[in-house]
């Protein structure tokens, strides 16, 4: 995303403005541009494809509904990613009706929002672990906020500034969370071997 600048970010701005005026063709092109990054972001956040697709769909529909509220069209990408991350948080925080797994506490005392549905239902856990690759399994060990920073940086390839905008946190906080994420993941690599 941060790789091709200038030309394409102007083009995105034009598409956003036209979409704000009700041009669905321009919105379609935005859908085509962002559906994959959204899906991949959500997939790594949640660990399963079905939920990830729901997030991608809802984020884009929501973007359409709220598009007129976006005052700076240049901020569209980070605004869109923010909605996706929020939806991922909602999914991670809402336990399934049949789940009774409590929320874990991470060593530093911050609650770890794990995917409670995955751990409660054995069959579902098996399905998830077979569709989840090693990286996803390790990412599930990270608190959601660190996970988001890591994915946005390593997978979505946003700059620190863009991640800061997406998550509405200072850049210093982004760097801090990334450092903690790397440490935890490095630790996890030992278990994975």
């Amino acid at each position: 995303m941060s790789s091709d600048r200038n030309g394409s970010s102007e083009r995105i701005t034009t598409l956003v403005l036209r979409a704000q005026d009700g041009d669905v063709d321009s919105f379609e092109r935005l859908v085509d541009t962002y559906q994959a990054p959204l899906l991949r972001l959500a997939f790594r956040m949640l660990g399963n494809r079905a939920d990830a697709e729901d997030v991608a769909q809802e984020s884009l529909m929501n973007a359409w509904v709220k598009l007129d509220l976006l005052e700076t069209p240049q901020a569209f990408p980070t605004w869109l990613y923010r909605q996706a991350v929020n939806k991922c948080r909602d999914i991670l925080r809402s336990p399934r009706r049949d789940s009774t797994v409590p929320i874990d506490e991470a060593p530093e005392g911050n609650p770890v929002w794990t995917d409670t549905r995955a751990s409660s239902d054995p069959q579902r856990a098996a399905e998830n672990s077979s569709s989840m690759d090693a990286l996803s399994a390790m990412l599930q060990k990270l608190p959601a906020e660190q996970r988001a920073c890591w994915i946005l940086r390593e997978q979505t390839e946003l700059s620190y500034g863009e991640i800061s905008q997406t998550l509405a946190i200072p850049e210093a906080t982004v760097r801090g969370r990334l450092a903690r994420a790397r440490k935890t993941l490095a630790n996890e690599m030992k278990e994975w071997q």
């Binding site: 379609e28 859908v31 559906q35 994959a36 899906l39 997939f43 769909q57």
Partner: peptide, 18 residues
Amino acid sequence: DSSLEIEPHVRRRIVDFA
């Protein structure tokens, strides 16, 4: 992940919604 794309019917649903 580079082959991960949304399903065509999901894309259609989004555009129809718009």
